[in-house]
């Protein structure tokens, strides 16, 4: 790949471009040769279960973990040689909040901005702006520790914006938050996207992926198993609807063969049976017509969870 030097906005290059990218720890390949390209302005997702290699990929992109093999360019530069210059232009939201617990909310933003070499006056004004963005203005001079999980996460995201990054890396941005806090965060991330900030998001949560990502790759065992937009992936790898059947404990096994042929495809989970069909209602009627009586039934639309199940034979969240 041609090297294209100092932040050239003239020559459009992808925000991130990886080819045959590998990360090995000891003998184990956490990332086993992936090709990935993230374009300017999009929200790109890495969807996969824990241990799929998402975070390792993110750390390589964030220039804090050297790649073991393959090609990687971030903002057109090589993390190996231009790490500090790349990091100056990206924002990182790590999986676990690492806010500075010895500082206040305001100081967290100011001090972090100073790490980027920004002037005192600039970070002072920026902190005020970001606290408003994160709805933390009334907690400005409080310590970080007593803040709720959602507030800390918002502060971490605000902190990642202190250098006005072109690219934001979000590692599991809402894991562990309650629904209300997640929706607030999603709203904020959407707002940033509107402002043109490119985002890369890892998640093992299909709702989050569907909610946030324009395009995503599904990762499993260090490899990419599928790529596309959420609706495209669902269209390609699943049916329109899913019928879920729950049986009394111990009764499921005997019923599978009686109904499996009613659907395009079926999946057996420990606690339920999934029948994939374009018309869930009709399938349910057919199930009843065969005299099968589940304890409960549910008809829903296919999600990325179903795509993942189809591609890997496993659930996203064990």
């Amino acid at each position: 790949m041609a090297r294209d030097g100092e932040g050239d906005e003239r020559e459009p290059h992808p925000m991130v471009s990886g080819k045959a990218l590998v990360k090995r720890f000891g003998g184990i390949a956490a990332v086993a040769g992936i090709d990935v390209e993230v374009r300017r302005g999009e929200s790109f997702g890495f969807l996969g279960p824990n241990g799929a290699g998402k975070s390792s990929t993110m750390r390589m992109i964030a220039c804090v973990s050297p790649r073991s093999d393959g090609e990687l360019r971030v903002l057109g530069m090589d993390p190996e040689t231009d790490g500090p210059r790349i990091r100056a232009r990206i924002g990182v939201v790590p999986q676990l909040d690492n806010l500075d617990v010895e500082l206040t909310v305001r100081q967290n933003l100011q001090v972090y901005g100073r790490y980027f070499g920004l002037s005192r006056a600039h970070v002072r004004a920026k902190a005020v702006e970001l606290m408003a963005f994160a709805e933390l203005s009334d907690r400005a001079d409080d310590q970080v520790e007593p803040l709720s999980g959602g507030m800390k996460r918002r502060l971490t995201i605000a902190r990642s914006m202190v250098n006005d990054p072109e690219l934001l890396l979000l590692d599991e941005p809402t894991t562990g938050l309650d629904p209300q806090a997640r929706h607030l965060l999603w709203g904020r991330l959407y707002q940033l996207k509107q402002q043109g900030v490119t985002q890369i998001i890892t998640t093992h949560d299909m709702h989050e992926a569907e909610q946030l990502c324009d395009r995503l790759v599904v990762m499993d065992g260090g490899q990419i198993v599928a790529e596309g937009s959420p609706s495209n992936l669902i269209g390609r790898f699943s049916t329109r609807e899913v019928l879920e059947l729950r049986f009394a404990p111990g009764k499921q096994d005997g019923q599978i063969t009686r109904v499996a042929d009613l659907a395009d495809r079926h999946e057996v989970l420990p606690d339920r049976l999934l029948l994939y069909a374009d018309d869930g209602e009709a399938t349910l009627e057919a199930v009843h017509a065969r005299g099968v009586r589940p304890v409960s039934t549910l008809i829903r639309r296919s999600t990325l969870e179903d795509v993942f199940l189809r591609l890997t034979g496993r659930s996203l969240v064990e």
Binding site: V64, P84, R87, P94, L96, N98, L99, V101, Y112, Y115
Partner: peptide
Amino acid sequence: YAKVYDAMLATPLG
């Protein structure tokens, strides 16, 4: 514990 240095290393600091 506090991972202060991890946070610093995500910036241009080394």
